[in-house]
Amino acid sequence: MINRESVAGRIAKFIFLGTWLIITLFPLYWIVVTSLKSPGMIFKFPLEYWPTEISFDNFIGLFSKADFGTYMFNSLFAATMTATVVTLISLLAGYILARFEFKSKGAVLGAFLVTQMIPAFIALGPLYNMMSDLGLVDTRGGLIVVYIAISIPFSTIMLRGFFANIPDALEEAAMIDGCSRIGALFRVLVPVMLPGIMATFIFSFVNSWNELFLSVTLMNSDSNKTIPTALNGFITSFNIEWGPMAAAAVLTVIPTLVMFAFASKYIVQGLTAGAVKG
């Protein structure tokens, strides 16, 4: 330890990191506080930074006045199905792109990367037309299929990074022992890179859980709405009701927050592996 930190440096560091932590967490704190206030308290001066009386009316209203339980179920269903299928499919593609050399490999990777750069909105109109021709508009399956397609490129690139960290010898040994390639992949490699797979799963789960524009475009009926679509509905109506909105926001954020808290370390690994090495 040669360049030891000075006291002043340590204080500056502490203040900076502390300030940023407060800035980062404050919006979460504020939305929770808002969601626990009754309508009268939300619009009352002076603003209360900790509600003197806590009310769960906003949460109750979401389930009694709106059909928030259905929206939550729809989101949960879409996100779980998407993440499961995407992780499986991307596992195969990521494995190939990490282990094999072939002529069109650059083109395949390029085709995946390009999808991340083109504004998705260029595809919204035609996608709607196509889905309506296929009879998939306003169906849960249709939405999931589209979510799978948009999540594959990123998940594949992420999993490719995790495969690259595992020595070839592992599956070669298994294959010499008589395992098929797919057997070696699932029996030997998958257990070793489970954290990376979980991170990929969570990443595509959270992205589907949060997705707005596709679901607004494809889902019309109230019983098929996902949470973001429902929130969007809260806005476009003439006035925003901030109490229920805050409660809905809290319910939307909590599951993803918990998942990210557990997987953040591996998500960071997955994101940075490719960028720093390549």
Binding site: P27, W30, T256, L257, F260, S264
Partner: peptide
């Protein structure tokens, strides 16, 4: 690190709504 990861768990759209509320001119 896990704490400052928080913004990433929130969708851009919802962040817009959170800040819309915090930047509200009256309340």
């Amino acid at each position: 690190q896990a704490f400052i990861f928080f913004p990433w768990a929130v969708s851009g759209f919802l962040i817009g709504i959170l800040f819309r509320w915090m930047f509200n001119g009256e309340f």
